[in-house]
């Protein structure tokens, strides 16, 4: 279950204009590079090609940055697990947390030995990636 901002303005006109101008200039640089190669100016061609590729990379990066910012507006609540344990026979039942649960609360009867079971733990599990400095 994740939630997102309902009406978030993800792109501004100014931002789109910059992206489009950069793309247009990059294409222009590619044309220039093509012309330069045709007349035998290989070094000029290389430089225009470099400008074109850089411009294109910059505009792509800008679009991806905005997408990342939009994604950061979502958050997912963690899953909380309740463990119910029979103190007599050790029977264990793990289920999702329900309102009213608390640690050391007596709950239903044990299906094996008919003794009252008790909530032994309530916690959330996080699967974290291994950190280099952790």
């Amino acid at each position: 279950m994740s939630e997102t901002a309902p009406s978030t303005k993800k792109f501004s006109f100014f931002f789109l204009a910059i992206v489009f101008i950069t793309i247009a200039l990059s294409i222009a640089a590619f044309f220039q590079a093509f012309d330069a190669y045709n007349v035998g100016q290989v070094e000029n061609g290389h430089f225009f090609m470099l400008i074109g590729v850089s411009g294109l990379a910059l505009s792509t990066y800008m679009v991806f940055q905005t997408r990342r910012r939009a994604l950061r507006l979502t958050f997912t609540p963690p899953r909380i697990a309740t463990t119910i344990l029979c103190q007599k026979c050790g029977f264990k039942n793990i289920r999702d947390f329900e309102r009213g649960d608390f640690i050391f609360k007596e709950t239903e009867e044990c299906p094996k030995c008919k003794e009252k079971m008790m909530i032994n733990s309530i916690f959330r599990e996080i699967n974290e990636k291994k950190k280099r400095w952790g």
Binding site: I21, L25, A28, A29, F31, Q32, Q41, N44, F47
Partner: peptide, 23 residues
């Protein structure tokens, strides 16, 4: 072997002008 900046953006065509002005 780096060409002159003026050579990079030749002024005899419109694209060269645009790139030079933007620069």
């Amino acid at each position: 072997m780096i060409p002159e900046v003026s050579q990079l953006f030749p002024q005899d065509n419109i694209l060269g002008w645009i790139i030079q002005i933007t620069w």
